[in-house]
Design a protein around this nucleic acid. Structure first.
Lengths: 107, 107
DNA sequence: AAGCTACATGTAGACAGCCTATATATAGAA
DNA sequence: TTCTATATATAGGCTGTCTACATGTAGCTT
């Protein structure tokens, strides 16, 4: 998966993966890898700053937790985040429609 | 249309729009706007450097032409460019499948 | 004649997001 | 003790798209 392609869609991915329940950063990376069948292997240097950015934006809220002697920062979707996710899904649909209209004019 | 979203897909758009015949830069911008129903309005500062980059890569070839007293640089797809376009189409399909698998896990 | 719009190309520099590389730390297995 | 998996974090680099500007022709309006 190309880095440039992912650009602008990272937020949608992170919000979507948190939709069904809170997760910490490391688990988010694993969830993205599993859900995509191994195609998405997002580095920590991408995910952690992005999560903080989304929290600053009010879309996520986080709290520290402890599990097996290791500290985790667990993120959950806020109400604003749910709304943002809906917006991202809508934007994704129109985005694919627009690019598709150029790449596949027949359809 | 967001600038970040377009990132990594510009090449595919330019190659696709040149598939059915040569065009000059200004006409390419108009073609993208028309094909997308007005959603794509790519600035010249994006298109002209991108076309040169694609030519350097061997995917496009260009030559100067004159029409109505104005000079145009007309671009056409090379053989390599056709192959690149096929690759871009394939990449687009897997890209949408991957993002879709996260955004719409049900499908 | 002057001014405006459409046509047509091009570059410099800003911006922003994703990446690599690095640092730190615990737990458990080899 | 060493290696791997788990877990978080930041600094700096890279690069493609954008804004803003520069240049010039043609044709229409005032």
């Amino acid at each position: 998966m190309n880095a440039d392609e992912l650009r602008g869609h990272m937020d949608a991915l992170l919000l979507a993966v948190l939709e069904h329940g809170p997760l910490h950063g490391y688990a988010i990376i694993e969830a993205l890898r599993e859900r995509s069948g191994g195609a998405l292997d997002v580095p920590t240097g991408t995910v952690y700053p992005a999560l903080r950015r989304l929290e600053r934006a009010g879309y996520l809220a986080s709290e520290w937790a402890e599990a097996g002697g290791r500290r985790r920062r667990t993120y959950r979707l806020t109400g604003e985040g749910q709304a943002a996710l809906a917006g991202e899904r809508s934007a994704w649909r129109s985005f694919t429609a627009v690019i598709g209209s150029v790449l596949d004019p027949s359809r």
